[in-house]
Protein backbone atom coordinates (compact mmCIF):
# COMPACT_ATOMS: atom_id res chain seq x y z
CA UNK A 1 0.00 0.00 0.00
CA UNK A 2 2.48 2.60 1.24
CA UNK A 3 6.20 1.93 1.19
CA UNK A 4 9.15 4.02 2.28
CA UNK A 5 12.44 2.83 0.92
CA UNK A 6 15.52 4.45 2.45
CA UNK A 7 13.44 7.61 2.67
CA UNK A 8 14.74 10.80 4.20
CA UNK A 9 13.49 14.33 4.65
CA UNK A 10 15.40 17.56 5.19
CA UNK A 11 14.00 21.03 5.64
CA UNK A 12 16.02 24.23 5.50
CA UNK A 13 19.25 22.24 5.54
CA UNK A 14 18.26 20.36 8.70
CA UNK A 15 17.76 16.64 8.40
CA UNK A 16 14.49 15.55 10.04
CA UNK A 17 15.16 11.87 9.46
CA UNK A 18 16.98 9.64 7.02
CA UNK A 19 17.16 6.10 5.67
CA UNK A 20 13.68 5.09 6.80
CA UNK A 21 12.20 1.83 5.65
CA UNK A 22 8.52 1.22 6.20
CA UNK A 23 5.92 -0.92 4.54
CA UNK A 24 2.24 -0.69 5.37
CA UNK A 25 0.75 -3.97 4.22
CA UNK A 26 -2.99 -4.26 3.50
CA UNK A 27 -4.98 -4.75 6.69
CA UNK A 28 -2.06 -3.98 8.98
CA UNK A 29 -2.24 -1.83 12.11
CA UNK A 30 0.73 0.34 13.02
CA UNK A 31 1.47 2.80 15.75
CA UNK A 32 4.11 5.44 15.21
CA UNK A 33 5.49 6.86 18.40
CA UNK A 34 8.39 9.01 19.46
CA UNK A 35 9.19 12.24 21.26
CA UNK A 36 7.69 15.55 20.17
CA UNK A 37 9.55 17.00 17.23
CA UNK A 38 10.89 13.63 16.14
CA UNK A 39 9.15 13.96 12.78
CA UNK A 40 6.04 11.81 13.21
CA UNK A 41 3.81 14.33 11.44
CA UNK A 42 6.38 14.78 8.68
CA UNK A 43 6.50 11.02 8.18
CA UNK A 44 2.71 10.88 7.92
CA UNK A 45 2.77 13.72 5.38
CA UNK A 46 5.16 11.68 3.25
CA UNK A 47 2.65 8.84 3.44
CA UNK A 48 -0.17 10.88 1.91
CA UNK A 49 1.84 12.93 -0.55
CA UNK A 50 1.68 16.23 1.29
CA UNK A 51 5.48 16.27 1.33
CA UNK A 52 7.97 14.71 -1.03
CA UNK A 53 10.93 12.81 0.41
CA UNK A 54 14.26 14.54 -0.14
CA UNK A 55 16.04 11.19 -0.14
CA UNK A 56 15.14 7.61 -1.00
CA UNK A 57 11.76 6.72 -2.38
CA UNK A 58 8.14 6.73 -1.22
CA UNK A 59 5.68 4.58 -3.12
CA UNK A 60 1.97 5.16 -2.80
CA UNK A 61 -0.01 2.19 -4.07
CA UNK A 62 3.00 1.15 -6.11
CA UNK A 63 3.69 4.55 -7.66
CA UNK A 64 6.69 6.73 -6.94
CA UNK A 65 5.31 9.72 -5.04
CA UNK A 66 7.94 11.97 -6.58
CA UNK A 67 6.63 11.24 -10.06
CA UNK A 68 3.01 12.00 -9.22
CA UNK A 69 1.40 15.18 -10.51
CA UNK A 70 -0.82 17.27 -8.24
CA UNK A 71 -3.99 15.79 -9.71
CA UNK A 72 -2.64 12.29 -9.20
CA UNK A 73 -1.83 13.10 -5.57
CA UNK A 74 -5.43 14.31 -5.18
CA UNK A 75 -6.63 10.99 -6.61
CA UNK A 76 -4.37 9.12 -4.14
CA UNK A 77 -5.82 11.03 -1.22
CA UNK A 78 -9.23 9.63 -2.00
CA UNK A 79 -7.75 6.25 -1.10
CA UNK A 80 -6.07 7.57 2.07
CA UNK A 81 -8.19 8.92 4.90
CA UNK A 82 -6.36 11.40 7.12
CA UNK A 83 -7.27 12.51 10.63
CA UNK A 84 -5.30 15.34 12.22
CA UNK A 85 -5.08 16.35 15.85
CA UNK A 86 -6.20 19.87 14.90
CA UNK A 87 -8.80 18.58 12.50
CA UNK A 88 -9.90 21.35 10.16
CA UNK A 89 -13.31 21.75 8.62
CA UNK A 90 -15.19 24.15 6.41
CA UNK A 91 -16.82 26.10 9.20
CA UNK A 92 -19.66 27.50 7.09
CA UNK A 93 -20.91 24.01 6.19
CA UNK A 94 -22.82 21.65 8.47
CA UNK A 95 -21.18 18.63 10.07
CA UNK A 96 -23.01 16.36 7.63
CA UNK A 97 -21.84 18.42 4.65
CA UNK A 98 -18.28 18.35 5.94
CA UNK A 99 -18.38 14.58 6.30
CA UNK A 100 -19.70 14.29 2.73
CA UNK A 101 -17.03 16.69 1.39
CA UNK A 102 -14.70 13.95 0.00
CA UNK A 103 -17.62 12.65 -2.06
CA UNK A 104 -18.51 16.17 -3.18
CA UNK A 105 -15.01 17.06 -4.40
CA UNK A 106 -14.76 13.79 -6.30
CA UNK A 107 -18.11 14.52 -8.01
CA UNK A 108 -19.71 11.48 -6.45
CA UNK A 109 -23.23 11.82 -5.20
CA UNK A 110 -23.46 11.43 -1.45
CA UNK A 111 -26.14 8.90 -0.62
CA UNK A 112 -28.07 10.28 2.38
CA UNK A 113 -27.90 6.89 4.09
CA UNK A 114 -24.10 6.83 3.84
CA UNK A 115 -23.76 10.07 5.76
CA UNK A 116 -26.51 9.16 8.21
CA UNK A 117 -24.96 5.76 8.89
CA UNK A 118 -21.53 7.31 9.40
CA UNK A 119 -22.94 9.95 11.72
CA UNK A 120 -24.55 7.18 13.72
CA UNK A 121 -21.33 5.14 13.72
CA UNK A 122 -19.32 7.99 15.22
CA UNK A 123 -22.22 9.06 17.48
CA UNK A 124 -22.88 12.45 15.91
CA UNK A 125 -26.43 12.00 14.64
CA UNK A 126 -27.77 14.85 16.74
CA UNK A 127 -24.97 17.17 15.61
CA UNK A 128 -25.53 16.58 11.86
CA UNK A 129 -26.83 20.06 11.18
CA UNK A 130 -24.53 21.91 13.56
CA UNK A 131 -21.52 23.88 12.36
CA UNK A 132 -18.04 22.53 13.24
CA UNK A 133 -17.20 25.41 15.66
CA UNK A 134 -20.14 24.24 17.79
CA UNK A 135 -18.57 20.80 18.33
CA UNK A 136 -16.43 19.73 21.28
CA UNK A 137 -12.88 18.42 20.76
CA UNK A 138 -13.99 14.79 20.85
CA UNK A 139 -16.88 15.43 18.50
CA UNK A 140 -14.55 17.16 16.04
CA UNK A 141 -12.20 14.15 16.11
CA UNK A 142 -15.08 11.78 15.44
CA UNK A 143 -16.38 14.00 12.65
CA UNK A 144 -12.89 14.05 11.12
CA UNK A 145 -12.76 10.25 11.34
CA UNK A 146 -16.14 9.97 9.65
CA UNK A 147 -14.94 12.32 6.89
CA UNK A 148 -11.76 10.28 6.52
CA UNK A 149 -13.60 7.02 5.95
CA UNK A 150 -16.60 8.09 3.86
CA UNK A 151 -14.74 7.30 0.63
CA UNK A 152 -14.00 3.84 2.03
CA UNK A 153 -10.25 4.42 1.74
CA UNK A 154 -7.70 1.63 1.81
CA UNK A 155 -5.52 3.37 4.39
CA UNK A 156 -6.35 5.48 7.47
CA UNK A 157 -3.62 7.79 8.76
CA UNK A 158 -4.28 9.44 12.12
CA UNK A 159 -1.97 12.05 13.59
CA UNK A 160 -2.43 12.28 17.38
CA UNK A 161 -6.16 11.63 17.05
CA UNK A 162 -6.59 11.50 20.81
CA UNK A 163 -4.41 14.49 21.62
CA UNK A 164 -7.26 16.81 22.52
CA UNK A 165 -9.75 14.43 24.09
CA UNK A 166 -10.22 12.79 27.45
CA UNK A 167 -9.44 9.14 28.19
CA UNK A 168 -12.96 7.90 27.64
CA UNK A 169 -13.19 9.61 24.26
CA UNK A 170 -9.76 8.37 23.25
CA UNK A 171 -10.91 4.79 23.95
CA UNK A 172 -13.99 5.38 21.85
CA UNK A 173 -11.92 6.74 18.95
CA UNK A 174 -9.53 3.83 19.24
CA UNK A 175 -12.39 1.35 19.12
CA UNK A 176 -13.60 2.99 15.90
CA UNK A 177 -10.14 2.69 14.36
CA UNK A 178 -9.85 -0.94 15.50
CA UNK A 179 -13.24 -1.61 13.97
CA UNK A 180 -12.06 -0.13 10.68
CA UNK A 181 -8.95 -2.32 10.78
CA UNK A 182 -11.11 -5.38 11.34
CA UNK A 183 -12.99 -4.35 8.19
CA UNK A 184 -9.69 -4.69 6.33
CA UNK A 185 -8.45 -1.11 6.37
CA UNK A 186 -4.77 -0.38 6.91
CA UNK A 187 -4.29 1.89 9.91
CA UNK A 188 -1.32 3.99 10.98
CA UNK A 189 -1.67 6.08 14.12
CA UNK A 190 0.98 8.57 15.19
CA UNK A 191 0.77 9.07 18.94
CA UNK A 192 2.83 9.45 22.07
CA UNK A 193 -0.02 8.11 24.20
CA UNK A 194 1.46 4.80 25.41
CA UNK A 195 -1.69 3.78 27.26
CA UNK A 196 -3.59 4.00 23.99
CA UNK A 197 -1.05 1.72 22.37
CA UNK A 198 -1.26 -0.80 25.22
CA UNK A 199 -5.06 -0.85 25.01
CA UNK A 200 -4.93 -1.41 21.27
CA UNK A 201 -2.36 -4.21 21.55
CA UNK A 202 -4.70 -6.00 23.90
CA UNK A 203 -7.37 -6.00 21.20
CA UNK A 204 -5.48 -6.48 17.93
CA UNK A 205 -2.10 -7.32 16.53
CA UNK A 206 -0.39 -3.98 16.10
CA UNK A 207 3.21 -3.13 15.25
CA UNK A 208 4.71 -0.21 17.15
CA UNK A 209 7.35 1.88 15.45
CA UNK A 210 9.44 4.44 17.26
CA UNK A 211 10.92 7.47 15.51
CA UNK A 212 13.93 8.51 17.48
CA UNK A 213 17.28 10.10 16.66
CA UNK A 214 16.14 10.44 13.04
CA UNK A 215 15.75 6.68 12.68
CA UNK A 216 12.75 4.38 12.70
CA UNK A 217 12.94 1.45 15.08
CA UNK A 218 10.62 -1.35 16.00
CA UNK A 219 9.57 -0.71 19.60
CA UNK A 220 10.31 -3.49 22.04
CA UNK A 221 8.69 -5.09 25.02
CA UNK A 222 8.65 -1.86 27.06
CA UNK A 223 5.25 -1.27 25.53
Amino acid sequence: MIELDNAGYSYGGAEIFSALDLSLAPGSFHFLTGPSGAGKTTLLKLCYGELIATGGQVRLFGQDARALGRDQVAQMRRRIGVVHQDCQFLDHLSVAENIALPLTVSNRAAHPNDVTDLLGWVGLTRQANQRPPELSGGERQRAALARAVIMSPDVILADEPTGNVDWEMSQRLLSLLVELNKMGKTVLIATHDLSLIRTAKSQISARVLRLKDRKLQLAGADL
Binding site: R70, D71, A74, R77, L101, P102, V105, S106, M151
Partner: peptide, 16 residues
Protein backbone atom coordinates in the same frame (compact mmCIF):
# COMPACT_ATOMS: atom_id res chain seq x y z
CA UNK B 1 -6.15 29.22 2.72
CA UNK B 2 -7.74 26.93 5.31
CA UNK B 3 -10.58 26.04 2.95
CA UNK B 4 -8.03 25.13 0.28
CA UNK B 5 -6.04 23.01 2.78
CA UNK B 6 -9.15 21.10 3.79
CA UNK B 7 -10.28 20.56 0.21
CA UNK B 8 -6.84 19.29 -0.75
CA UNK B 9 -6.78 17.00 2.26
CA UNK B 10 -9.99 15.30 1.13
CA UNK B 11 -8.76 14.84 -2.44
CA UNK B 12 -9.93 17.93 -4.35
CA UNK B 13 -8.05 18.60 -7.56
CA UNK B 14 -6.74 22.06 -8.40
CA UNK B 15 -9.28 22.57 -11.17
CA UNK B 16 -12.10 21.77 -8.75
Amino acid sequence: AQVIRVMRLVGAQDTY
